[in-house]
Amino acid sequence: MSTITNNASGGNLSPEALSLKHRPRPVEALIYGFLFFCGIVSIFTTLGIVYELGKESLLFFSTPGVTIWGFLTGTRWQPQAGNFGILPLLTSTLLTSGMAMLVAAPLGLAAAIYLSEYATPSLRKALKPTLEVLAGVPTVVYGYFALTFMTPLLRAIFGKDTVEIYNTASAGLVMGILILPLVSSMAEDALSAVPNALREAAYGLGATKLEVAVQVVLPAAVSGLAAAFLVAISRAIGETMIVAIAAGAGPRFTFNPFQAAETMSGHIVRISGGDLSYNSIDYNSLFAIGLFLFIVTAAINLVSQQVVRHLKRNTQ
């Protein structure tokens, strides 16, 4: 009985009692404020990175005797002697990342082709996550692997006189294993996104599986593949623990992958791991290296995103 009367009064609301105006909702406003804050934390992170790296780098470059030109072209990094040339750190970074790509690019691409074009759906479903486990292994474990497995292997193959205990080749090769799943996974996505109609067209002309994969599917996915490689390169350049453990401590201007040479990230981690006093030139110089590293990786990432966007526009 009572429900009926309630319903009736609710239904016959008098026009004066009904207000459709905005009511203040303080809780909603508060929540919105919090969510907005969360949303822009990432902006502040970026600004923080740019500000801190930039500030310390400015201090570094305003030190007497230090010039940007000398920093970019100097072949010696000896803070005690006032030599701050990034080239030795850069060449070894290029050596390790180059080695890594030498492993990861062909193997990753081949694995991607296999997964996308050859494997049955069920096999692909099992293999892809297994490969991705490799990407989840902490990098310090890869550093251990480089030092205890890869280095002895290289020394056994090429001789102990040729291969130093710490060397960029070992670190680079193991880093290749680390980024292999990154390449294969992204490349596989790109290959799978190629429409089946193209494959059928090629098969219909009497193409073999290999011809379809290499001459039709690969070219159609080329921007996705380029993006995969770029992301992998950027990852390799920034990778730290493997090189810190296996590539050697101490900058050295060399192109010989069997010699010890410290990379940019390896140098940052070694110096900051020691007792480091703020406001020293050592401290500032680390941030200059960090800024360089940040700019290089960010530029590569931006290019790869551009490539992906280009790809999306083309396939739509």
């Binding site: 429409p195 109609a197 193209l198 059928e200 067209a201 090629a202 219909g204 039709v216 070219p219 159609a220």
Partner: peptide, 10 residues
């Protein structure tokens, strides 16, 4: 074979 949707190679 010729397919329902035209599928030239890119």
């Amino acid at each position: 074979m010729v397919f329902q949707k035209p599928n030239p190679f890119p």
